[in-house]
Every structure is written in C-alpha cells, then in structure tokens.
C-alpha cells in the first residue's frame, strides 16, 4: 500500500518536471517552429495535470481550445514569419539588464507573498461536473456569459463584414 501511495505523487511530480522541461525548451529553442511544437506539448501536459486533479472537463476543454484551436493559429502565424530558423538572429535585445532588474523586483515582491499565503487545500479531490458548470453559467454567471456571447457575435459579424466581397 505504501508503494501505491508513493506512485501517485511520484508520477505526478515526474510529470510536472517533464512539463517544466518542455516549457524551458519552448522558450530556449532557436527554431520558432520547434518551440511551437514544444508549446503544444506543454499545453497537452497542462491538460494532463487537469486530468490528474480530476478536472476532466477542464482538461478536455484545454486540449480542444488550446491545442486544437489556438496552437493552429500560432502555427499559422509562425508560418508567415520570415527567417524563423536562423540561429544568427539574437533571441534577446539590448534591454536585457533593465528587464532583468524589473523582473527581479517583481519576483522580490511576489514570491514572499506566494509563500506566505495559506492556500486552501481540498483534502478529497472533487470531480468538477460539466453539468454543474453549465448550470452555474446559466444561472449565477449568466450576465458575463451573455456578454461574452455578444462579443463573439460582434467579432463574427465583423469577420463576415471584412471577408465579404464588395459587390
């Protein structure tokens, strides 16, 4: 039983380490296309974390939206980028030092706070049901939900207006 108790956390942390490695690869790879591939893997890994934590609906939506839809957009954007695989192009520019200082200051402020906060830990993992989510969206959060749909509708109409040929 001890071993079984160990395997769960061990595989979870191993998985996390793998995702971190992929994330680091995403930002350090010189080839933009390769980093897009690593980004896709990272996003799939994040979805797997959701599966680990029994938030299956979120995991599914993560894959559907981020990996399925947004990554495709990203890849299309990369395809239009010139000189994507050229290692002679510098990855960072001259404001390296100021950015580093600003980030260090931010981290100095944030990290102690994150460490100090007592996170509410749920002892027994509760499955997030899609039914509950849907009911919450249609009752408690109906206003933001409808607002989002109006924004989407406006975007859709705008896209049609742009794509429409002049007659």
């Amino acid at each position: 039983m001890d071993i079984f108790g160990l395997i769960g956390p061990a595989s979870f942390y191993g998985f996390m380490a793998g995702i971190l490695v992929l994330a680091v690869l995403t930002v350090t790879t010189r080839n933009l296309f390769h980093s897009a591939i690593f980004l896709a893997f990272t996003l799939i890994g994040v979805a797997c974390i959701y599966f680990f934590l029994r938030a299956e609906f979120l995991g599914g939506v993560q894959i559907l939206l981020y990996v399925g839809a947004i990554m495709t957009l990203v890849i299309f954007a990369i395809m239009l980028t010139a000189k994507m695989g050229d290692p002679s192009i510098p990855q960072s520019n001259r404001q390296r030092l100021p950015v580093f200082l600003a980030l260090a200051a931010l981290a100095f402020l944030l990290v102690p706070q994150i460490v100090k906060t007592s996170w509410k830990v749920v002892e027994s993992l509760k499955t997030t049901s899609a039914v509950e989510l849907g009911q919450a969206l249609m009752s408690e959060f109906v206003l933001p939900f409808e607002l989002i749909s109006i924004v989407l509708l406006a975007a859709l109409i705008g896209a049609i207006a742009i794509a429409r040929s002049d007659q």
């Binding site: 299956e56 609906f57 399925g68």
Partner: peptide, 25 residues
C-alpha cells in the same frame, strides 16, 4: 468510462490537425 467521453474524443481528434501540419511543414 470518462465523465467527459465525447468531449475527450472531440479534443483528441482536434489535435490531429497540428501533427498533420507539422508533417507538412
């Protein structure tokens, strides 16, 4: 018996696109 069976199927089949594109690129 995933509680999100159909969604799981839709999500996975949507990822195929990327790999087809990676292959072609």
């Amino acid at each position: 018996d995933l509680s999100i069976g159909i969604l799981f199927f839709l999500a996975l089949s949507s990822t195929t696109t990327i790999w087809i594109f990676v292959a072609s690129w």
